[in-house]
Design a protein around this nucleic acid. Structure first.
Lengths: 178, 178
DNA sequence: CAGGTCATGTAAAGCGTTACATGATTTT
DNA sequence: AAAATCATGTAACGCTTTACATGACCTG
């Protein structure tokens, strides 16, 4: 069987938490993993179809009221694939793409004020994210709780770094104009 | 003119630092921005061709010995586009995708040892990255210096977080088996 | 002279977001 | 009655990585 795609990993994992519809999975991702692993409908639904064809999940109609709704659950094969991935010792994927940082990198082309602007932009962005994470209640499972704790800690650290960098830059600019 | 693609941004920016070949740009990216903004040959070369067609850059042959080599430099139009992007107030892109964290999130499906394994994997990965960053000398420009300082600080923080999480988990597992 | 680096490029294939389309139901 | 939410899906489009192909030059 082929390797799981990025979206495939989170889809299969979310189904390990219980029967879910595609819509449910998207909600869960947006609430719980978006800050370190996003997914869109455009990938989730086709992935569900593929997984069912491969026998990793089975779907069943479970309308909510008169609304059509199809929920999926893992098969033993699916649980096996999930387990294999979770225990696989392969080099883990780690991607970070940060536009404020790239603008800071090139800021010498337009002057040091941009540096300050970008650090502020990064801080504001991060403060919003932290607020979202703080609005989430304590997850009952240890895994999600650890991931949430990480998210809060990382965003707090980022904010602190920005604040310190801002102060340093502000005093530099003050000193320069004096 | 259309928005700059992710690779377009770093290509144009690198050309603001001086004449570069596609190969040079790739080297610079791999050395200096890879940890927060990667790019591959498969995007760099086509992007250079497009930029030249659009009049944002001009290329010229500058062989190194007998080796064919084509270097590019910004035109005024190109400098304008770069400047517009650098000063644009649009919501900056911020992406983070971390597989160890996703495995931690789903770790309840296979047991708490996985949590410890993944945190260790994340720490090892990060230690390697930090070592790479520490091998880079002080950049002469303020922008690259700030970006480098950020990279070092973030990776150091990450390692600290992992260490603390590991200790906590180890003592939990000890307590559980006692 | 073999292996590494310099150097340019392309093709295929997959991934992913965005936007759109549709329609029922629930809330205001 | 309108707006938001639940729910499923697809199509287009662009981006990116990966792999490959080619060849000159330099180093041990």
């Amino acid at each position: 069987m082929p390797e799981l795609s990025a979206t495939g990993r989170v889809v299969l994992g979310m189904l390990a938490l219980g029967k879910q519809s595609g819509y449910d999975i998207k909600q869960l991702v947006d609430m719980a993993t978006r800050h370190f692993w996003a997914a869109s409908y455009g990938q989730i639904y086709p992935e569900l179809k593929r997984f069912e064809e491969q026998g990793l999940i089975v779907g069943s109609a479970e309308p909510s009221g008169g609304r059509a709704r199809r929920v999926y659950e893992l098969t033993d094969a699916g649980r096996g694939v999930l387990r294999d991935w979770l225990l696989s010792p392969e080099e883990p994927l780690f991607e970070f793409r940060c536009e404020p940082l790239l603008k800071i990198f090139f800021s010498d082309a337009v002057g040091p004020d941009t540096r300050l602007d970008q650090i502020r932009a990064m801080r504001l962005l991060t403060e919003r994210k932290l607020a979202q994470l703080n609005a989430i209640g304590s997850p009952p499972l240890a895994g999600p709780a650890t991931a949430l704790a990480f998210g809060k800690a990382m965003n707090s650290w980022l904010i602190d770094w920005c604040q310190q960098a801002e102060e340093k830059l502000e005093s530099e600019i003050e000193g320069r104009s004096a």
